[in-house]
Design a protein around this nucleic acid. Sequence first.
RNA 1: GCCGGGGUGGCCUAGCUGGUCAGGGCGCGGCACUCAUAAUGCCGAAGUCGCGGGUUCGAACCCCGCCCCCGGCACCA
Length: 541
Amino acid sequence: MKIPHDKPVLVTSALPYVNGECHIGHLRTYVPADICVRMLRKMGYRVIFISGSDTHGTPIVLSAEAEGTTPEAVVERYHEHFRRVFDALNVDFDYYGRTDSPANHARTEEIVKDLMARGYVYRKKTKQAYCNTCGRFLPDRYVEGICPYCGTLARGDECDQGCGRHLEPGEIEEPRCKICGSAAVYKDQEHFFFKLSAFSHFLLSYLHGLEGTANARNYALEWVKRELRDWCITRNLEWGVKFPGRDDLVVYVWVDAPIGYISFTEELLRERGEDDTEWARYWKNNEATIIHFIGTDIIYHHCIFWPAMLKGAGYSLPRAVIASGMVKINGKTFSKSRGNVVWASEFLERFHPDMLRYYLVAQSSHTKELDFSWDSFFMRVNNELVAILGNLAYRVLTFTYKHFGMVPAGEIEDEVTSAIESATAEVLSAMENYEFKKMVDATMGLANFGNSYFQREEPWHLIKGDEDARRRCGTIIKNVLQILKSICILLEPVMPEKMGEMWFQLGMETDLHATKIEDLRAPIRTGQKLNKPAVLFQRVG
RNA sequence: GCCGGGGUGGCCUAGCUGGUCAGGGCGCGGCACUCAUAAUGCCGAAGUCGCGGGUUCGAACCCCGCCCCCGGCACCA
């Protein structure tokens, strides 16, 4: 894909639901998003990068009750937790908001009113399970009972043990409250529905033009080609955004969550002192390129509900959706209850964040499943970051530091230029296709080339020779230093801290993070003093 | 059941608009080197590309049938 250069770019990363700690499944979406943003900036784009905490919904309310505290307290705790993790990993959002902010409430109300005014929302009576003991209505997933089709024990929304059929609210027989276990009764309840079915035609053509990864587009198209059911967008809860004109209902969390993308943009621009209508350039007038990073589990919401809502309320539409594959642990699906999970904090206590950033993109292509294991992590770090990249930097820098102390004179050889050029071309084309693994593979290929070149030329012999030999040695060194400089620029988006360290050791005085891709073509300056080299990556495991 | 993804040397995997397509990595064996974090380089062994048909001058790649594995099936963040 080609992102237009003349428009600002808005990149969003899916909103973590702040009902628990951050695990590496989350990071598989946020880290590549951050890498993408850093690379876009290197390519000269103006980018703002936004995310935030998804704070509403039933699970948070239930967690709060279980702990004897308030939803606000739960949200506050995990909101801060996620902020700290992103900070530690250098996932560098321009703005990280939360969906319970006044701005998001206001924007959500406005959008819902817009949808109502345009006739896309209607009311309908439904039967809903009510628990007399708990004194409240029960969302589908907190009801269990007997499946009317096959007679097995089933969840409120799906016969998960038996026939697998989806169950409409009110269908399940002998409903029981999953929270307290007592029998529930059905009560008539009025709810509001979004006319999703009216958007089939629009979605079909929208999705055909949607950029990003094929998995997102194809998955959504499957649904649209079948049939879209209207979508119940209200819930009987206290915690959330009140449905306009109804104190007893809040909007469903998947309405106000993506709207966070809009309100966080508003909040960021206000914080920057921009005009109050500046956000409209991004979200009303199609004057920006909107790109969403999500996980494959929420393709449905981002490729169907969300564009339908935006279209229905008269907002700008996303240009691309990039969906990362799910993470497994030792071949098994994530499961908190079974302890089959790897927490972000557990990682960060033991390893440098750049190792995790590297692993997350190097281990598997973005849309495929990533099977995490500690062995595979240790292997990648030891064989690639330590043995290939770290070792190349250290062997060259210590050699240079000892014998020259600065960048020696010499021409960059054609062979080296072409290796650098082709690696750069590969990185950029991988970037265009959101193939982050190919980005790092191409750069590691350049490091391999560097090792091979250095080994073949044997500068450790040349340095002991006559004046010609020593001059030749300097040329070799200058060439390998040029390779290192290029690697710093190409891998900075992936490993911002470690590449910054290498940049410093090379004696570069500019800010690596602000360095553009074109800058790697400039030869490293002869006479530039090196700083004392140090090992970049320690072996792990 | 339906939909999607996948089955390539011991392991992971690239390739999937058909003709250097049988590549890479790990592991393994040999040699070289000593600037380097027992790191690096070079060479090598190993594969009927799930099974059976078909299309074609030619298929891992296209078509048909079959067998396995994984995931999703709507309000679940």
